[in-house]
Nucleic acid binder design. Structure first.
Lengths: 231, 231
DNA sequence: CGCGAGCTTGACGTTGTTCAACTAGAGTGG
DNA sequence: CCACTCTAGTTGAACAACGTCAAGCTCGCG
């Protein structure tokens, strides 16, 4: 299932993270020596919550979901990753454990970098370290939004937030075809699958959105924003 | 109201953060030159959400609450800070905005360090930078716990979590007298004040806790953990 | 053709919020 | 010293929001 390749090197990689632009040539070469590239099929797991954290991954192709697993209950999806993004884990420099799971939503590719290598470069290059801190902080800020949305908004607001998130942040279009299941969408909004479906239908009846299976069209984003705020 | 003092220097400060133990003597001296110490009364605001982020603060005495403000609705309390902790903000190196508010829960003292100074030391001392990343990651991990507690547990579980948090993390005792109001406790659990009070009473009737005004006793932590998990 | 997975719908019961009223204590001014 | 107001805490009842359960549906696949 999983193929491993190493087609090109990091210096000329078209998917190179913007975070890496601060690296010197020899640092990129060092990265390149110590990475490996993996292809994933839909549904395959990249990182598993609870396991050891040994690598960071750069997502170069495809789509991934990042989610927290809860014994017995539904999962909580934190966010969706697309190229080109780095995915580490908060266990880095703490206890080297994975605190979330990551799975591929479609055929995807990721480069893995050993954390020892990553740490060494962080030590060498302070500009890179600061950029990495900025990256961590950005994720943190987004988590606050998520926290407020999930705790202080009613279902309608959360569904609106999810639709806006997909359209604006992920697919960057008012029309999109998603590989997320209804359960995934519900996990992203932290509500029951059935409730999600019901509200989707309400939005369709209200003329705010249109959908057919997994292809969605946002017709009235004004209204969606209003729903998001008023709840 | 607010007194400014500068009694001792950072090197001999008994409240020195463990994070600072990796600093060289001249770096601590540099910090000491560029800090100021402020005393706060109960209720006073240290950082205000939405305002400019210009300093980090080291909490040396007292107790603070960190909370997200939501237009019109209740606040969401993220955590409580006690000596000796650093409080920065995720806007650091991103957009220099405050993403949460911080207020004193009792007479408290904090040292403020200019972010330019903080950033300079981060650049100079890579060990310090890595320790700072570890600190950010620890906060991140705690936020995941909070997120799961608030989204996947019912009220009883969340109230149990709040009581356990206060006892174990903050007051470090099964008996504690808190300066948090009922509204604060509800904000910490993300439920309505009335609901919080009702569940508190249920727990008292069930013999799990005892309380009188603001002094609490946890009588049966086993039961509280069971409630936390089963919900 | 039949099976299974994911999707959809309806009915129902629980959970948790909201509103309103009441209480107790602390401060204020006559 | 007594009204008074103001705030925080408490209680009850009504209602809305949301999850759960169960059934039927669709579609792709063997």
């Amino acid at each position: 299932m999983v193929e491993i390749t190493k087609d090109l090197n990091c210096e000329e990689c078209p998917f190179k993270l913007s975070l890496f632009k601060h690296l010197k040539q020899e640092e990129l070469a060092y990265l390149n020596e110590n990475r490996y590239e993996v292809h994933f099929n839909t549904g395959e797991t990249i990182f598993k919550q609870g396991s050891a954290l040994t690598h960071v991954a750069c997502l170069t192709r495809g789509l991934f979901k990042v989610y927290l697993e809860d014994r017995s209950k539904n999962n909580l999806m934190l966010r969706i990753l697309k190229p080109t993004e780095l995915i580490g884990g908060p266990g880095f420099l703490v206890d080297s454990k994975q605190y979330f799971s990551v799975a591929a939503l479609e055929r995807s590719t990721a480069c893995f970098i050993d954390l020892k290598v990553f740490e060494k470069i962080l030590r060498q290059n302070s500009e890179f370290a600061l950029q990495f801190i900025a990256y961590l902080n950005t994720i943190h800020i987004n988590l606050y939004d998520k926290l407020l949305s999930l705790t202080h908004k009613n279902m309608h607001g959360r569904v609106a937030d999810t639709l806006i998130y997909l359209s604006k942040q992920i697919y960057k279009s008012l029309n999109f075809e998603t590989t997320l299941s209804r359960q995934d969408l519900a996990d992203l909004s932290s509500i029951a699958k059935e409730s999600f479906i019901r509200i989707l239908k309400e939005f369709k009846d209200g003329g705010f959105i249109q959908f057919e299976g997994n292809s969605f069209q946002l017709k009235d984003t004004e209204a969606l924003h209003r729903i998001s705020k008023s709840s």
